[in-house]
Design a protein around this nucleic acid. Sequence first.
DNA 1: TTGAAAGCGCTAACAG
DNA 2: CTGTTAGCGCTTTCAA
Lengths: 338, 338
Amino acid sequence: MAKRHVSLKDLATELNVSISTVSRALRNHPEISQEMVRKVQDLARARNYTPNPLAMGLLRQETRMIGVIVPDLVTHFFSSVISGIEYVAKQNGYYILISSSSESYDKEVESVRNLLNTRVEGLIVCLSQETSTYEHFDVLVNYEIPLVFFDRVCRSDEVPSVVADNTEAARQVTRHFYENGCRRIAYINGPAHLSISKLRYEGYLQGLKDCHLSFDEELVAQCNLSPEDASKATRKLLRLKNHPDAIFGINDTVIFAAMREIKQFGLIIPTDVALVGFTGEFHSTVVEPSLTSVTHPTFEMGKEAARLFFERIKNPTAPPQQIVMETSLVIRNSSKRK
Amino acid sequence: MAKRHVSLKDLATELNVSISTVSRALRNHPEISQEMVRKVQDLARARNYTPNPLAMGLLRQETRMIGVIVPDLVTHFFSSVISGIEYVAKQNGYYILISSSSESYDKEVESVRNLLNTRVEGLIVCLSQETSTYEHFDVLVNYEIPLVFFDRVCRSDEVPSVVADNTEAARQVTRHFYENGCRRIAYINGPAHLSISKLRYEGYLQGLKDCHLSFDEELVAQCNLSPEDASKATRKLLRLKNHPDAIFGINDTVIFAAMREIKQFGLIIPTDVALVGFTGEFHSTVVEPSLTSVTHPTFEMGKEAARLFFERIKNPTAPPQQIVMETSLVIRNSSKRK
DNA sequence: TTGAAAGCGCTAACAG
DNA sequence: CTGTTAGCGCTTTCAA
């Protein structure tokens, strides 16, 4: 702020009245003369006065800022959710302060601390991949500072959250494979402690049961969510003496890594191996073959998360809700065998 | 901020000393007894004291916040640049306040105003697609408030900026086509007023000249940057009685729309039509055929923009620099004909 | 209808 | 070595 913004004081001096008069006039206080109101408001406009949010914040103990912590900014899922959060925040006159944890527990802890030090009014968080203990959110919970989780969540009995209908989605995928003639359906999971891993795995198991397929441990691979590790997991599956005829991948990264590996093995999608992932439209339609995928309403998830946040601001002690967003299985070529 | 954060006053009361003593002790002021320093710092730690940035901001007239305005958050290019900005901002103890213009001029103008009202210390901006007048940045320029443009820039004589070596890149692409036997090289441009459009078009023309190819007006199509419009532009090119044997697309969106259209026309890439775009690695390698593309060092661009920003904070009146980032042409299958 | 004063949390100049 | 005071910009009693 090179040249200082004009303050109430500046206006007051110029009009030869007190600061409080100016303050009142600007807010159309009833006990002020029409004359004065007009004069002050005109000058304010002319001088381009805008209230200083720092001063207001100090006074009211509010900053109108929401801290948002995501594993990264560049994945479409996260940037899209952020867009949704931003959309609702803007409507409510709030700004968001974004911090990326880079999938690191330490950075997540640090972000929580830093954002709180910045006096954000609360946090909307998607847990990092490494995060498996949750004490760094104690402060928020104990002090009743609004907190909302999305996608990768924890402490759902204490903290409101927004998630996809992970279990149901994974179950449907499994059945879809079955209906397309697949019998050795593999699943590439993420880190075991993540809620999405647990829930989608759960759905996979339910789907197998629905189809009366027996569970085969060797058809489940696990990876951290890096492309390299996902490729490794895929190779492990493909090298089985009896390789899977379908692979379900927990997310974007995993499924594209898998796709590449399958092609490299000289196998045909979907004839040899059918493929389904969790991912957005753009990526799904641009690849060859086009990818059958479970799509999240990502922007909506962001909006819901923000909505829950503002409910929390209004009523910090209400019992925490969990919003489950419906996903939909969009069938494209990577899984069509009939 | 449900329960108030502890303040210097709280600590002072508890220790029965003055606020200033506490303040000084915390900052290791030389004229304070070791004894006192220890006592105060211990208590501060115990009570979890952190300075209130609102108070500090008010005092010092600084907020340690940078406003960032981008056309959208979900395009990989932008989110990646933002990551770079965030990285450097964090190093300097700054936060970024992100606002997306949704490619709308009006929203951009509003974002500038809102962010300034929030007292950010300056702005880092990529112009919206619609923006063709630049008076909304007058305030910044006149008041010497730090401002940096990236990618789509304007007023480069007054405002520092970071751009790709657009002209050179486009020129190389054209030559690359030529070397692969293409003779009817088309270009799909963006809105004419955007700097990137002008510069890449310029490079295209230079490339033609380098190869002694004559310029053919009907080989240049233009679109706003939406997928629909890009498809339309592509169709226009493909319907020419003598369709192009190469298409260069100004960005991601355009090139993927083009790819789809070409396939729909039943033409083979690269045999019938070679294709090159400006885009990141992930997308390029996931499509079939893999896409030859000019890649920006996006994260680095963000870092550079932030670096320029902090230079500006230190010295708001220095002559504005323009940083030109080198791009590189990564040759993949969509353009290999030899 | 308007003004004076206190206070939000903090630092810095000035006293002692 | 420590305390007092003023002030950053604003709202809100309380007085006039």
